[in-house]
Design a protein around this nucleic acid. Sequence first.
DNA 1: TTCGTTGCAAAAGCTTTGCAAATAT
DNA 2: ATATTTGCAAAGCTTTTGCAACGAA
Lengths: 146, 146
Amino acid sequence: MEYVQELKIFENYLAENNMHLTRPRKVILQVFLQTEGHMEIEELFEKTKMVDKNIGRATIYRAMNLLVESGLAQENSLIEDKKCFERVYGRKHHDHLVCTRCKKIEEFHHPMIERFQEKTAKKHQFTLISHHMTLFGVCQNCNCNM
Amino acid sequence: MEYVQELKIFENYLAENNMHLTRPRKVILQVFLQTEGHMEIEELFEKTKMVDKNIGRATIYRAMNLLVESGLAQENSLIEDKKCFERVYGRKHHDHLVCTRCKKIEEFHHPMIERFQEKTAKKHQFTLISHHMTLFGVCQNCNCNM
DNA sequence: TTCGTTGCAAAAGCTTTGCAAATAT
DNA sequence: ATATTTGCAAAGCTTTTGCAACGAA
């Protein structure tokens, strides 16, 4: 198994909470880590099925919550009405740019925007915890094929 | 009826699409316009019931879609797993600051952030259409009562 | 051996849809 | 008169939950 650090983090989280590192959880972690970008439950479900046919959707839902709680995953709301996850451990913070036509997702990071967000929160006397920022537009490719 | 402009916009939108300005739609528009801030379907449903007991949820869902299409309303995703609407016509664009404890929502507008968003889109060769930006934090009041 | 975990199916939300009756133009 | 709209109930989706069987420590 690769991803030694992530596995260790997950193991620690589970141990600290009297939980077990089970086979389904191992499989889900591995599939999650091997998947690039953003993934929905259904996608994870299909991919875990290729490793172990018996893993059910409910187990994926439950395991993904644990991955979020352990700090390995993050839930995004890029897709309406569906849960969507993304790796967060070992990756830099970023926000998203979504093409409204082809649904392509690009990542960006803008330090100045982050700084202004911090300032805005302060001005409103909020202790900033996190933020969602997603830009919607039409990518070059889709613009040409209109 | 107040809100002459909004009513006219809605009437025009409906007429252009061979749709009728019905009593339920009038009631829903009025309730929507009279409500401050962000509202969920259930809230609109309760409020319309006080004007007309017979209006059903489905009609609210359908009417809110029309209000969005006519440019009077905007759908926000401030509340997970639920539709949430907000007035947009006659109001300045703004983003949101949400207290994760008491769920209070404040509005803000930061021109520099908007400018950087525009620049970011250009850099990625996207034609920017819109954006979502929500800051999550703990408000002063909740910070004190911890 | 004990207690946490799993898969299944059922339940729970919110939202959409089919349809006959009602209504706007 | 005719085409749109309505309210209801049913269906559709995604997500959560209850529970007996299973599995990790």
